[in-house]
Design a protein around this nucleic acid. Structure first.
Lengths: 150, 150
DNA sequence: ATTGACATTACCACTATGGGAAAGTCTAAA
DNA sequence: TTTAGACTTTCCCATAGTGGTAATGTCAAT
């Protein structure tokens, strides 16, 4: 798209000023390069600065944001909630009540998903425990799934 | 696309022969019309018979298949596993061991998901329990997410 | 100057479900 | 019989989060 308007490498220079390229940022944050770009695209990350050659460069603060996203994901937060969490994180005058409300909402969703999966687990275990699991075709699992006594 | 080659309604006729149109099939099976078409498209359902006007018609056996899919979904099985389950269901010489293996595999996956979500739940609850949730900005939740002591 | 490792964008894929538009069909009432 | 409203068809798009690939350009080191 855009030709570099200086021909000498400038990534080295950026690095000396404390910047990282995308694969360094990836290693430091644990977020894949692919996802870093994606997070920028959906507005979760600010648009990264670029070298003249159009390479993204990241600073410490960007790395922290990526780590924040990474940890939020590992807690199961959706991207939308993470966007809100990041806004709250950057707002030094936030009321902690808002963060807590968001967290509690997510905790509730986790509980609902867990309960749902536990129901599935119980129902299926129940069907499976009576299945002999041999070479014969009789199968309480299939009967349980197909018959209407559900 | 195709013009009906008889002009009188024939859905009524089909109904008298024990067939259902898609919305009847939907009501009887609990699967949305949209998903019935989708299941047919991905090969989970056999291609439905059609009236001359190109409307799908379903018989009792189709309804049973739809219910089978519906119940399998409610147990959390993926479409791929459901396809296999359906094959086994229709194979009257299946070894029940195969069904049981599939079920146990899914049970294991459920257990893994549940464990994962329980970890999220525990970690987040832990962070949330120390958050006062008032108008002040101090927030152990945000600190926990942003700080590296993870 | 060349080469291999990396960056960029622009696509497509997945899972399962739903929404909507445009065109055609059915059913019931006027 | 005509007409209105409900329904059907196909086709495309969207969701959430992640990954893959391909074409093109750049960096780093030989």
């Amino acid at each position: 798209m855009r030709k570099a308007n200086i021909s000498s490498p400038e990534m080295a220079e950026a690095r000396q000023q404390g910047f990282f390229n995308i694969s360094e940022a990836s290693k430091l944050s644990g977020v894949s390069s692919k996802m870093i770009r994606h997070y920028e695209q959906i507005g979760l990350m600010p648009e990264a600065n670029r070298t003249f050659a159009n390479y993204r460069i990241f600073n410490e603060s960007d790395i922290n944001t990526l780590r924040f996203i990474k940890r939020s994901r590992s807690l199961g937060f959706s991207m939308k909630k993470i966007a809100t969490l990041l806004d709250l994180y950057h707002d030094k005058k936030r009321p902690s009540a808002e963060v807590k409300r968001l967290a509690n909402e997510h905790i509730k969703e986790l509980e609902e998903s867990i309960a749902e999966m536990q129901e599935m687990h119980a129902a299926l275990s129940n069907l499976a425990k009576n299945c002999r699991g041999d070479e014969r075709p009789e199968c309480p699992i299939l009967e349980g799934i197909s018959c209407s006594h559900h």
